[in-house]
Design a protein around this nucleic acid. Sequence first.
DNA 1: CGGTATCCTCTACGATACTG
DNA 2: CAGTATCGTAGAGGATACCG
Lengths: 118, 118
Amino acid sequence: MKTVLKTESKGIKKVLNTCTEPCSIEKGMRLIGGKWKGSIIYHLKDEPVRFNDLTRMIGGASKKMVDQRLKELESEGMVLRKVISDRPVAVTYELTDFGKTALSILDKLRIWSESHQI
Amino acid sequence: MKTVLKTESKGIKKVLNTCTEPCSIEKGMRLIGGKWKGSIIYHLKDEPVRFNDLTRMIGGASKKMVDQRLKELESEGMVLRKVISDRPVAVTYELTDFGKTALSILDKLRIWSESHQI
DNA sequence: CGGTATCCTCTACGATACTG
DNA sequence: CAGTATCGTAGAGGATACCG
């Protein structure tokens, strides 16, 4: 869908896309963007991980942050929380099938950002 | 798939990845993440776009925000600013070759977020 | 262990007005 | 048209302590 605005001399093309496509990017960014979300998902790619382990793996993120992001990811259906033991308390987090579909994007991002050092 | 967790008190395996991989994701997110950056890059995918047009295309972002993000993207070498006319003032922004390498990631993200409505 | 609670700072972002 | 300047707020995120 295209919207053409007023034309001007100089031959500068003025075709503006509507918001359909870009909003998808913002939407996607809200799901896997943010400061630690991508890292969290990426660290869960292989196997379930316990809360404190995850916090240590991220390195730099406080428990509070990891906790918040995990809750977001859980409510978005990307991460599954499992209580595996009561005494002592043990909880793991793992990716849902939907969560796993994000991995290919994050891996592309990782490879890309590793290939250009900026 | 490896089995990592045992439900007994002290025998829970702790496999912690080093920070090499996750940091790349955070680094990548800093480049194309953030509230409007992805959208800006995506809107420049086809052709140079003028400042006000870009602002209107994004829809929701103020001039100040677009200006800030563009400056970041310029300093990161992803976007090129070109003054094409003095009277009246006309400036366009376009992707550098490096900037274009981000498009495939953003497109993957767009397709992904469009295929799951959450 | 897996979280909460509290406090505090900092900056991201928006709104608005202005300029060359 | 392409920005700057200024002001104001919300909330993101860090540090630390505490709890069942």
